[in-house]
Structure formats: C-alpha cells, structure tokens
Design a protein around this nucleic acid. Structure first.
Length: 286
DNA sequence: CTCCAGGTTCCGG
DNA sequence: CCGGAACATGGA
C-alpha cells in the first residue's frame, strides 16, 4: 500500500466489505483496511474512509463510482418494498450499505456459469485459478492481480484445460459459451440494448445458463434491478417467510411469479437482502 | 463416509 | 408445467 493518497470518492450509505462479501462477485482480496481487485482490466485498491472511498492513485474515480453503483438511491429502493413486510425490512436493515454492483458482462456471465452447485469458497477458487492461468497480469504499485480471461482466450482452450481448473461438468458449458461470445453468435453489445425479457431469453439459449444464472447476469451484469435469481437459499427464505407450514412447498414457477408480483422494480435488491440475511442466520446457528 | 453447495439438462408423467 | 436423476468437486 502506498503512502500516496489517491482520490476520495463520496460514498454515503456504502458498506464495501458487506457488498464484496455478499456473493455477487468473487475475486476481491482483503488488503489491510481495504480491498484489491480488478474492475474489468484495471487493478484497483479501495478503502472505506468515513463516508467516502479512497481509491488507489492513478485510478479513475468515475470507474469506481460506476462499478460500485454509488448512484443507486437506496432509500428509494427500501421505499419500493411492500410496506407490511417486516421480514424484508429486517433483512434490508441488516444489509444497510450493501449495493448491487455493475459487473462487466462477460466475466459476470462466465463466473455464474461456473457457480452452479458450488459453494461461494469454491467459486472464488475457480475464479482465481482461471485468472491466474489465463487472465492478463495487472500491477498496482507492488501488488499483482489478474483480469478475468477474455471470451476469446477461453474459447481458444480445450475442455481438458478447464477441467484442470476444477470446473467439473461446468467446463463444457463455459467453453461453449465462450465460443458463442467470441464468435459473435452471442453479442455482448447487442445484449445491452435488449429489454429484460429478450435479454433473459438470449442468455437462456447459452449452455449452462438456466433461470437462476440468467437472472444473476441480468441483475449483476445487465443492470436489470427487477431480476430475481432464485437459488436454494432464496427458495428456503421465500418458503419459510411467505409460505409457512404448507404441506407441499410451492414449485419453482409459483415462487417466480410470487417474487415478481411482490417485490417489484427493485426485486433484485430484495433478493440480495434476503439472500444475505438467510446465509448470516445459517452461519449463526452453527 | 455421507451430505451439500448462489443449477442445468434431460426425461417420463 | 412438474418432479427425479445425473452431473464433478471439495469442505464440513
């Protein structure tokens, strides 16, 4: 860490550690009182400083502010939630300062393809291995880290190479999707102009992308804040909070429709709060 | 050893 | 549309 002070970016109501630890993104490393990580191709160090974010010297403050979505109006997010939902209000309270960051689309898509049936620690390990082996090296002062490998880079590999990164059956899916992106069959630029339904359909056509991963990409990489990924934790949360004591638990379709109706245009935030709330509660039990 | 993890796909009702 | 089973890997 340098003694040279970098730019100070205003960051009210922002909890950096909570945001980076909430299962949205998997490559940031703790570094003293801050974190070190790549934003797309740029290695950055950020550290909370009394309502602001200290950004490593020479790095664009605007890049950081955009990535961490410091412009999201969290009060408006909370106000959009159902007024009588005490559980959600409690979860939102426990997650004060958590933001839904804007991830580069390709690395978000690729990372969540590798995330299926994996614990967060495993997802982090896979991301790190892929970056170390196939990503571009980036330095910041004495620190070194790696960008996520491009779609073209992964497309040039063989399935064997990816299995060697502990991807298991996900290797074929990541490879085929990388090739679809590299060839232009799936256009990352065109994706940004699609509405939510069209964007979800385009994602679902990719191998290894089902409803859950598609919604993670819509939410974390596509800026669709109404997207509502339903994983095992959220399923558990919805069942226990909103369908208690039901003989046969609601099926996937019913849960999806329920969430869309109940949580509205900032459903993604509701989802992230509930997700984190459930996981913290689970850790507290054990 | 068994169980499960921010699921997807394919198959038979 | 729905429930089941297979699919790799590693930590608890």
């Amino acid at each position: 860490m340098s003694d040279l002070e970098g730019a100070l970016v205003p960051a009210p109501e922002f909890d950096l550690a909570l945001t980076l630890g909430s299962g949205q993104v998997f490559h940031w490393m703790p570094d003293g009182a801050g974190f070190l990580g790549a934003i797309d191709d740029v290695l950055v160090r950020v550290e909370p400083r009394d309502g602001a974010l200290l950004v490593s010297p020479g790095r664009e403050a605007a890049l950081v502010a955009h990535y961490f979505a410091l412009d999201h109006d969290l009060a408006q997010v909370r106000e959009s939630f159902p007024a009588n939902d005490a559980a959600l209000a409690r979860a939102a309270d426990a997650c004060r300062g958590m933001r839904l960051i804007r991830q580069p689309l390709w690395e978000c898509l690729a990372t969540f393809i590798t995330s299926s049936m994996k614990q967060v620690a495993h997802i982090r390990a896979i991301s790190l291995t892929l970056r170390e082996r196939y990503g571009a090296t980036r330095t910041l002062g004495a620190a070194t880290a790696f960008a996520y490998p491009s779609a073209a880079r992964i497309a040039a590999l063989e399935e064997r190479d990816l299995r060697d990164c502990a991807l298991g059956y996900r290797a074929a899916n990541l490879l085929a999707t990388a090739r679809a992106v590299a060839s232009g069959a799936f256009s990352l630029e065109a994706f940004g102009r699609l509405d939510r339904a069209a964007a979800e359909a385009a994602l679902r056509a990719l191998p290894g992308v089902g409803p859950k991963v598609a919604n993670c990409v819509l939410l974390f990489g596509g800026g669709h804040l109404a997207a509502f990924p339903i994983d095992v934790w959220i399923e558990r949360a919805l069942r226990t909070l909103y369908f208690p004591g039901r003989r046969r638990p609601p099926a996937a379709g019913e849960l999806r429709d329920f969430a869309a109706r109940r949580f509205g245009s900032y459903g993604g935030y509701a989802q992230q709060y509930l997700f984190h709330w459930m996981r913290v509660a689970s850790v507290a039990e054990t």
